[in-house]
């Protein structure tokens, strides 16, 4: 709570939030309203008027232009990105917290150093490496570097939460004859479900919205992801503004559903970015 004198209306705050509400709401409402009207309607009534009649022709047009295919590719990139990140990062975080090996702690320091590398600055050599691997124009070309640049932050977050697992629990499992691997599977995994979900959302959102790696690696239309698909919609729709807006709206729909039903995880996943 931060308002000092309570009770008295705070006019300044009221004015600021009213202005900001307009700034946020006008574009979003316009986007929705445009995407539900025909181009002719927009030309006749101007950009701020509500649609005179609701049409789903833009939806059909967007679907015709391969929206489903773009969506499928994005889902693959997002799903594989999350899976591969977790597969690499969970054992790594486990080793960071529990291993006595010098190599493990040295690796962790290298990861921390990696937090400072801006992915954009190294796209040229990444392009060289991916092309040499013969992966140009495949979804793997997007997934592999995306995962690599997520690893430092994800290992950092996961090892932070793994530190909270009490040593006595490991000791108890020792008595039961468990090895390091079984401890990971039946102790560490169940107890870190929360932080695993958080980093999954964080990695997933990043992959869902990624633009630069798809831009340099994906060329053929059947390989493109949503963000690139939107870019090609701009050319294909030309001055058909409502069609373009329907594409933008649809691309955000899955994240919006996540927002409605799992707001806590979405915010936590976003805040993971705040740790960076």
């Amino acid at each position: 709570m931060s308002t000092g004198a309570r009770g008295r209306p705070n006019w300044l705050a009221g004015a600021l939030t009213a202005v900001w509400l307009i700034v946020i709401a006008v574009p979003i409402l316009s986007m929705i309203s445009w995407s539900l009207q025909s181009q002719q309607d927009l030309l006749d009534h101007g950009p701020l008027a509500p649609p005179s009649s609701i049409t789903f022709e833009n939806f059909a047009a967007v679907m015709d232009m391969g929206f489903g295919r773009y969506m499928r590719n994005t889902l693959i990139v997002t799903g594989a990105g999350i899976a591969l990140t977790l597969l690499l990062a969970i054992p790594a975080a486990y080793a960071v917290v529990r291993s006595r090996s010098l190599l493990a702690s040295a690796s962790f320091r290298v990861f921390l150093l990696g937090l400072a590398i801006p992915a954009q600055a190294v796209i040229i050599p990444v392009y060289l490496i991916i092309t040499r691997m013969g992966l140009n124009d495949t979804l793997a070309a997007v997934i592999l570097p995306t995962v690599a640049f997520n690893l430092p932050l994800v290992v950092l977050i996961l090892s932070g939460s793994l530190r909270d697992i009490s040593g006595e629990l490991y000791d108890a499992m020792t008595v039961d004859g468990a090895g390091a691997l079984r401890m990971l599977v039946s102790l560490v995994l169940p107890l870190s479900r929360g932080s695993i979900t958080t980093v999954s959302v964080f990695v997933g959102l990043g992959a869902w919205n990624s633009f630069i790696f798809p831009l340099i690696f994906l060329h053929s239309p059947e390989k493109k992801v949503l963000t690139l698909g939107l870019q090609s919609f701009r050319q294909e729709f030309g001055i058909n503004l409502p069609g373009m807006m329907m594409g933008v709206l649809l691309s955000a729909l899955p994240v919006f559903v996540l927002y409605l039903f799992a707001r806590r995880w979405l915010v936590a996943g976003l805040a993971g970015v705040g740790g960076k």
């Binding site: 690499l88 790594a92 291993s99 090996s101 190599l103 590398i117 190294v122 570097p145 640049f149 390091a180």
Partner: peptide, 23 residues
């Protein structure tokens, strides 16, 4: 208590080294 050895962090380290440090 059994502890994980460095093999647990090796895949992540190699992956990160190859796609982020090498570039």
């Amino acid at each position: 208590t059994p502890r994980p050895n460095f093999l647990y962090i090796l895949p992540a380290a190699l992956f990160f080294g190859f796609f982020a440090l090498l570039p």
